[in-house]
């Protein structure tokens, strides 16, 4: 199904591909948060989608309040605020873990799932009460509206920046997890909590840390989304969260490169599906892909660990 006006198939294909890569980068960042938390706690953090929304809203507030005050140029302002959002949402993740998950760590996993769902309802409504139920618009000045023409393709610069930003964050994440001592500790806790504790790793501290890094990345992704689409809504976290979790499972849950791969694949599959198959079914593709992958490769593309029986 082709849209009118875009009559060269190859060009449209690359347009969709770039769009898919940009959105896929966002999915991948959110999926990282899911997969890390799942790795250490075997818990689906259903409130993660709401932390993503929180990042988008906090980003908007900060940009509007002093990002545009003129002390800094737009680019440094965006970068500083980006870092602040990561920290603030990370802090919210820390509080969330303390309040809603830590008391349930020893009880059955279903209780933790319901607690996570309750936290998600709470956060979503808190955001709605604070910012109102309507769409909110990101300030135009901070959005990059330049369109680059590369080899006859019109690609908005924002797409490229978005993709670069998410790739950079993922790369930093990958290096942190695989090359640093703390990263090794996180992997150790994910593999075997008991053994990690015996090796002198403070498991609680690591879990808190994971709950700061994951939501921090999710919040950053929320702000990227706001900058990309320009408008945000209090309940967008649910669908983005579900899709990102889907991406994490597609890549193999608990597996960090898997989450990145899954997110980008999902973004591209969705863009292609919406462009070439049926636009109205856009939101269904993610779940169709998920079902197909789980039927044929239940551990995901890169996963080795099978989810435990409950």
């Amino acid at each position: 199904m082709r849209r009118p006006g875009e009559d060269v198939p190859m060009i449209e294909f690359f347009q969709q591909l770039s769009n898919g890569l940009a959105v896929g980068g966002i999915y991948a960042l959110v999926a990282l948060g899911y997969t890390m938390v799942y790795g250490v706690l075997k818990l689906i953090n259903f409130a993660h989608g709401e932390l993503f929304t929180l990042g988008a809203y906090l980003g908007m507030t900060l940009l509007l309040s002093f990002g545009l005050s003129g002390i800094l140029g737009p680019l440094p302002a965006v970068l500083i605020i980006f870092a602040m959002i990561t920290g603030l949402v990370g802090l919210s993740g820390f509080v969330l873990e303390r309040a809603a998950y830590r008391p349930l760590r020893q009880s059955n996993r279903l209780a933790a799932v319901v607690s996570a769902l309750g936290a998600s309802i709470f956060l979503q409504n808190a955001i709605m009460l604070f910012y109102g139920p309507n769409y909110q618009v990101y300030p135009e000045e901070t959005r990059v509206t330049i369109t680059l023409s590369v080899l006859g393709l019109d690609i908005p610069l924002m797409r490229i920046l978005l993709f670069l930003a998410s790739v950079l964050l993922m790369l930093a994440m990958y290096l942190f997890i695989h090359k640093t001592k703390t990263g090794t500790a996180i992997r150790a806790v994910a593999t075997d909590q008991g053994a990690a504790r015996l090796m002198g790793i403070d498991v609680n501290r690591i879990i808190s840390l994971v709950f700061m890094i994951g939501p921090g990345l999710g919040g950053a992704a929320g702000m990227l989304l706001g900058l990309y689409y320009g408008q945000i809504r209090y309940d967008m976290g649910t669908l983005y969260g579900l899709k990102a979790f889907t991406a994490a499972i597609i890549g193999g849950i608990g597996n960090i490169p898997g989450a990145m791969l899954g997110g980008i694949l999902l973004g591209v599959a969705e863009a292609m599906g919406a462009a070439y198959v049926a636009p109205a079914w856009k939101d269904a593709f993610a779940f169709l892909v998920l079902i197909v992958i789980l039927i044929f490769r239940p551990t995901g593309l890169l996963g080795e660990r099978v989810a435990d029986k409950i």
Partner: peptide, 13 residues
């Protein structure tokens, strides 16, 4: 499918 995998697939459905 087991545990959380089933959970997510049923949400997808």
């Amino acid at each position: 499918l087991r545990g959380d995998y089933l959970l997510v697939v049923t949400i997808g459905i």
